[in-house]
Amino acid sequence: MTHILDRPIWNALQTAHAGIAEGGPLARRYPPGIVPFAAAADDTPESLEALAALPRPDETMALVEPGSATVPDGFDIVGAATLIQMIARTPHDPLSDPRITPLTEADAEEMLALAQLTKPGPFTLGAQKLGTFWGIKNSGKLIAMGGQRLRQTGFTELSGLCTHPDFQGKGFGKLLFRYVAGHIAASGATAYLHVNALNTGAIALYKTLGFEQRWELNLKIVRRRD
Rank of each mutant, 00 (worst) to 15 (best):
R7K: 10
M86D: 01
A106V: 01
A38P: 13
A113V: 03
F37W: 14
Q14T: 13
L51S: 08
Q152W: 00
G135Y: 11
E216P: 00
A202F: 12
D166H: 11
V78Y: 10
I203Y: 14
Q128R: 15
L217G: 07
R224A: 14
L198R: 15
D6S: 13
F177W: 13
Y30E: 02
L63R: 02
S139W: 00
L217Q: 14
T15K: 04
L217P: 12
A202T: 12
T153V: 10
D76H: 07
L219W: 15
A106I: 01
R225Q: 15
H164F: 02
D97C: 06
W10N: 06
T153M: 01
T118C: 15
G154F: 00
Y179D: 11
G24P: 06
L95H: 09
T118A: 10
A144I: 07
V78W: 02
F167L: 00
G79A: 15
A106C: 03
A38Q: 12
R223T: 11
L150E: 05
M61C: 05
T90L: 11
L103H: 01
A52L: 10
L150V: 02
P94G: 03
G74P: 09
K119L: 08
F155T: 04
P165V: 07
A40F: 11
K174R: 15
G201N: 14
N199S: 06
N218V: 08
F167E: 07
I84L: 13
I136P: 00
E212F: 06
E109F: 01
G154M: 00
R223A: 15
N218M: 13
F123Y: 05
P98S: 12
A40Q: 10
L219H: 14
E105S: 12
P165G: 08
L130S: 02
H92W: 02
F211S: 02
